Simulated assay, not measured.
Amino acid sequence: MTDAVRPPLPPFTEESARAKVQAAEDAWNSRDPERVALAYTEDSVWRNRDRFLTGRAEIRAFLADKWSRELDYRLRKELWAYTGHRISVRFEYEWHDADGRWWRSHGNEQWEFDANGLMSRREASINDVPIREADRRLH
Rank of each mutant, 00 (worst) to 15 (best):
A115I: 05
T13E: 04
R104C: 10
Q110F: 09
E42N: 06
V129Y: 03
E58A: 15
P11D: 12
W103P: 04
D128R: 00
S68I: 02
L9K: 15
D43Y: 04
R86Y: 09
D50T: 13
Q22K: 15
R35S: 05
K66P: 02
K66W: 04
G100S: 12
F91W: 11
W46Q: 06
A134P: 06
R121H: 15
A17N: 04
P130S: 00
L118D: 06
D128K: 01
L53Q: 11
F113E: 00
H85G: 06
E14C: 04
W111V: 02
A64H: 11
W46M: 07
N116E: 03
A17H: 14
W80L: 07
H96G: 00
K77C: 11
H96Q: 08
H106C: 06
E123W: 08
A24P: 03
R136Y: 00
R122E: 07
S105G: 13
R60N: 15
K66A: 05
R74W: 04
N29D: 09
A39H: 15
L75Q: 07
R69E: 08
I87P: 04
V36A: 12
R122I: 00
G55K: 02
T2M: 01
D97L: 05
R137W: 01
T41M: 01
D26N: 07
L79V: 12
S120H: 08
E92H: 12
W111I: 01
Q110A: 11
I131G: 04
E42L: 05
N116K: 14
V45S: 07
W102C: 05
A24V: 10
R35E: 13
F113G: 03
P130V: 02
G117P: 12
I126D: 04
P7V: 09
R104L: 05
A4F: 10
S88G: 15
D50E: 08
L38D: 11
F62E: 09
E34S: 11
V45M: 02
W67Y: 09
V89M: 12
F12H: 06
H96R: 10
H106M: 03
R60G: 04
L138I: 11
D26G: 05
F62T: 10
S16Y: 10
N116C: 12
R90W: 08
R136Q: 02
R122D: 10
A115W: 06
A39M: 14
L63K: 12
